[in-house]
Amino acid sequence: MALGAPPDAVNLGLGEPGWPLPTGQAVRPDEGSVDLSYGPNTSDPALVDAIAGYAQARGADTVGPDGVMVTAGSQAALFALFQAYAEPGSAVLAPDPGFVAYPTLARLCGATPVGYPLGPDGDLDADALLAALCEHGHTSLVVLNHPANPTGGLTSSGALERVAEACAERDVLLVSDEVYAELWVDEPPASLRDVTDVGVVLGSMSKAFGAPGLRIGWATGDPEVLAPARLVHNAMTTAPSRLSQRAALALLEAAGEVLPAAREQLRLRWDAVARLAPCANGHRFLGDGPQKARSRSAGRVGFYLWLPLPEGIDPDGTEAFALRLRDEGRVTTIPGTAFGARGSGFLRVSLGGPVEDLEEGLRRLAPWWKA
């Protein structure tokens, strides 16, 4: 979508934090010599311990260092888990609309991606997922994503418990992608670890820690479950960059400073939406049509606005409208169809960039929904 955009277009499409890191000494790697050896396949023991401690602080009491797999971003964790568990000819259940990598990773394994529908507000619909699980008897892997990309949807502890029990009964690996879990304003969202020790939970430096370029992520779970995925990851990269691991350790050690600062930046962005696009907080963006955007009054999480098209625009023209908005309105968004067939009729607007860009982008969007 960014290729060919006007030079002065405001990009509200990229899902990347745009706020600066705190400048305190606590978040800077120590001075001194830099070790550029390969390092252990399991990564720096200090970083592994820090991630285990971080997971325990988030409720994963049973996670120890042997239950942490450090990877070259959460994307590498997904790839390794899919390669280890997504059997050729099996079904892989993933949200639709959902993160674009899930179906691609399934196909790379010879598996069939099956999109399960979400609730009307983008939240996990346990009934719909369980129906898909029953329909596809040969299912090897189920993926959850909450807070969700692109919808910003959440899930309840009860829904997580039902899905976890069903996957355990069928011996299906459950992967809970929670890379946006620390990006909340009002209250923290539910985690798979609130209800069960089974399955794998993903985390990352890329979102709330504001450091996507480090390419450091992790998976936590039963060491025996992680073992085959470790073999895949070792064959992929040997180990993540030593420099990135060092920076990630500094950020984790400064989590008490970094995460509250990220949430304050997030609050500024949702406040901008409330100020410049008040109808997006529970109703149609700057309009009164029958479709509704996800309500944020009960909890602002993540940095995506899942925006219905203006009234009168055919959902089949989602991509064409996004291109018009880019070329004529000079705002880049992502058409919902990029995230699955059920994304038709929506645009994903990223709130993650600089606040000034977001405010200008929202002003440019407004006339298209008032017309």
Score class of each variant (00 low, 15 high):
L93W: 06
S241A: 10
V114E: 00
A2N: 13
G73R: 03
A168C: 07
S350F: 11
W218V: 06
L358G: 02
L118D: 09
A181M: 03
Q291M: 14
G302D: 11
P117F: 14
A91W: 01
A52H: 07
W184D: 00
L144I: 05
V10Y: 15
E16W: 12
F321I: 03
S90K: 01
A111T: 01
R267V: 02
L259G: 03
V198M: 07
G345V: 07
A190R: 07
V195Q: 12
V225N: 09
H283L: 12
R162H: 12
A26S: 11
A211P: 08
G210A: 14
S297A: 14
A46N: 08
L133C: 07
A159Q: 09
S295M: 11
T318S: 10
R363E: 15
R269C: 00
E87L: 12
E328C: 06
V273K: 09
A366I: 12
L231R: 12
V195L: 12
L351I: 10
A128R: 07
V34I: 14
G317H: 13
L259D: 02
A106M: 00
D30S: 13
D327M: 06
A211W: 01
E359G: 07
V142R: 08
T196S: 15
S241Q: 00
S33H: 12
R330Y: 06
V114P: 02
S90E: 04
R342H: 10
A91P: 01
A235W: 08
A341Y: 06
K207A: 10
A166F: 09
T220L: 12
S43I: 04
L118G: 05
G256R: 03
L141C: 13
G24R: 03
G59M: 07
H138E: 15
D49W: 08
A239P: 02
H233M: 03
M69K: 02
G24C: 00
A322Q: 07
V232W: 04
Y304R: 10
D327Q: 13
G115W: 01
A72P: 01
D61Q: 13
G289E: 15
S295C: 14
P22V: 01
P6C: 11
L160E: 11
D288V: 10
A261I: 09
A5R: 12
Q245I: 03
T238V: 14
P22Q: 01
A131E: 10
R267G: 00
L214D: 10
W368I: 02
V258P: 05
A181L: 08
F79R: 04
N41V: 13
P260L: 13
V331F: 13
P113G: 13
S33F: 13
Q75S: 06
C134K: 02
A86Q: 05
I313Y: 06
T333E: 05
G15Y: 15
S140P: 05
I216V: 15
P150W: 11
A277P: 14
L251R: 01
M205H: 05
L133G: 06
V34C: 08
F303E: 03
L78I: 05
A111C: 02
L309Y: 02
V100I: 09
R364M: 03
L173M: 13
D121M: 14
D30W: 08
S295K: 13
G352S: 12
A80H: 08
R170H: 14
L192T: 05
P40F: 11
A250H: 00
V200W: 06
W19I: 04
L251E: 00
